[in-house]
Design a protein around this nucleic acid. Sequence first.
DNA 1: GAGTGAGGCTATTGACATTAGCCATAAGGC
DNA 2: GCCTTATGGCTAATGTCAATAGCCTCACTC
Lengths: 195, 195
Amino acid sequence: MPRAGLDRPSVVAAAVAMVDELGAESLTLALLAGRLGVKAPSLYKHVDGLADLRAAVTVESKRELAGVLERAAVGHGGAEAIVALADAYRAWAKAHPGRYPMTIVAERADDAEDIAASSRLYAVVAGALRALRLDGEDEVDAIRALRASLHGFVGLEAAGAFGLPDDVDRSFALMVADVVAGLERRAAKDGTPAG
Amino acid sequence: MPRAGLDRPSVVAAAVAMVDELGAESLTLALLAGRLGVKAPSLYKHVDGLADLRAAVTVESKRELAGVLERAAVGHGGAEAIVALADAYRAWAKAHPGRYPMTIVAERADDAEDIAASSRLYAVVAGALRALRLDGEDEVDAIRALRASLHGFVGLEAAGAFGLPDDVDRSFALMVADVVAGLERRAAKDGTPAG
DNA sequence: GAGTGAGGCTATTGACATTAGCCATAAGGC
DNA sequence: GCCTTATGGCTAATGTCAATAGCCTCACTC
């Protein structure tokens, strides 16, 4: 029997592809092994079971999304940066419906890579809001509002909750514009000490 | 062997309780049967397998949430109604983290009960926005924006994505206020033909 | 009280994860 | 160029779970 030449990165990459194609539910060691030309127990040489594999796919997905958002934000400032981030966020989620939900699960305290990837994701959103010059609790509140809107819209869209034929792109653009306007008003209020 | 006296409603009710306690992942026919003092195959006399049971729990959850929201909205008008709806929505989701995600899955075209429950849920959100007097696409856009914000916030909260200690209630109240303000501005623009 | 059907049951199959333990291959030391 | 070693495959076995088939008995009806 020739060696298949697998290692952890290649196994995780195949798992990522599988989740993209078949959805998170369908990620099974048996099927993945088959695709890699190997029997299921062999995967345990590279990965510590299904839970570990899922965790690895999660980290990889957080990294990928963070990278996409970082690239989307460059060259834009102020409100434009937020809109660019929002569009990239939604596009990535639509392109990877199987993996998108993984990007919002809380980081595992014992996984340094997960913590790093999650922080990157948080940082890129925070970065898009930097121009508003909010700080402390106000900044946290703003980040939460933006993340909630984006995640909610994308999550509902992926779940097929927008059954009506009305233009979804338009609904999204309007929502993002409202969020931007709302946060800008918060920033204005913040910067202008009330009498 | 005495009969256990089960029927579809009692089996579904036990499943609902199980999801509330243990989460959706842990809903298994084997465990549920054990709780009901019965062996797993017996459940097939009342329910058409795990998929059917999950679908039934989903419908029940949509109904329950719709009922809660309907009750929350009565006695409020305008912006107040939206805030009341939002608070009730979040409270229910926090109280039922295992079932909440089921409430957003698209209805199954072949399940009349599911369609009815989903419509009720949509209608109660639409009702809270009625005072804005939006119509057609504008109304659809508004409903989507409100649903997205609510779903996103509670989804992130349930996922443990709000790791920072900052006051989550405050973040939510601010977001809802911004959504209300944004939609009111849309309504004003809509009612005032631009020059 | 006989008949009947609903609601339990056991037995079995099949998918899957996981563990234990074996064996060959590929890589490195002499 | 051999010998050692550990890595990366394997088979075999266990356990959990869903699902199906087919049996048996209780409870209700006539």
